[in-house]
Simulated assay, not measured.
Amino acid sequence: MNTPHVVVIMGVAGTGKTTIGPLLAARLDVPYAEGDDFHPPANIGKMTAGTPLTDDDRRPWLDAIGAWAQGRAGHGGVVSCSALKRAYRDRLRAAAPGVVFVHLTGDRALVEDRMSHRQGHFMPTALLDSQFATLQPLEPDESGVAVDVAGSPEEITERAVTALETLPGPTP
């Protein structure tokens, strides 16, 4: 029997990580964890104030997500995490070897439009430029897939499931 992947849903703010993550987890029949819930209160305060996080700010957050992913190894799971830099993904892989990434990608105008219609989220659209500036897309040696966020959540989820099926290793 194949062991399910632990999948990290990554991408800039507004690409739909919080929407697609639970849908993907349901399709894969594994638990979902919201990456924002792993942020310490100081990080949320900074982002709410429109201040981008530093690498130092992100370390405890990444470590907490990595610990969750490591705990799901062998059982599978889906967790959202922007994972914008290769170094962040390397940190997650160090904590939980075998994680795979689904990079939600999209046109900046579409992402900004979606962000502007969100309610009750602490991340302002003013930080979108810093997110795109920080983003380092998946490299060929990283286990993961890129999925375009155009279309409905169900269409995006289906593309993610299909793309994950192409990865070597455990069946998603």
Rank of each mutant, 00 (worst) to 15 (best):
G77L: 14
S130Y: 02
A67G: 02
L24Y: 03
A33C: 06
D129Y: 04
G98V: 09
H103P: 01
R86E: 02
T125A: 15
A146D: 01
P97W: 03
H39M: 09
D29R: 04
V30W: 00
T134F: 04
V79T: 12
R89P: 06
M47G: 01
G144S: 15
R91M: 05
S130A: 13
P60R: 01
S116Y: 02
V100P: 08
E34V: 13
V78E: 00
F101W: 12
K17T: 11
A13P: 13
H103C: 05
A69G: 08
P140G: 13
L128S: 08
F132K: 14
V149E: 05
L138R: 12
R93N: 09
A94Y: 05
F122I: 04
A13E: 15
R114Q: 06
P137H: 12
T15D: 11
T125N: 12
T19H: 13
T18E: 14
G16P: 10
P52L: 06
I20E: 01
V149N: 06
R89C: 08
L92F: 08
M47Y: 14
W61S: 05
T48R: 14
A25L: 11
H117T: 04
V111S: 14
R118N: 09
A26N: 09
D63R: 07
Y88V: 01
P124M: 03
T18G: 11
A26I: 04
G98N: 11
A150L: 08
C81W: 03
N43G: 09
G21P: 12
G120H: 08
L92R: 07
V79N: 05
A87D: 10
P41E: 15
D57V: 00
I44N: 05
D37G: 07
T15K: 02
S82C: 04
L138N: 08
A109M: 06
M123R: 10
R58E: 01
P41H: 06
G50F: 12
T48Q: 15
V100M: 03
L84A: 12
G120P: 15
S82V: 07
E34S: 13
L127E: 06
S80H: 06
P137C: 04
A96L: 04
A73E: 06
G144H: 02
S116C: 09
L104W: 02
L110T: 13
R58Q: 03
E112M: 13
V102G: 00
A83D: 03
W61I: 08
G35C: 10
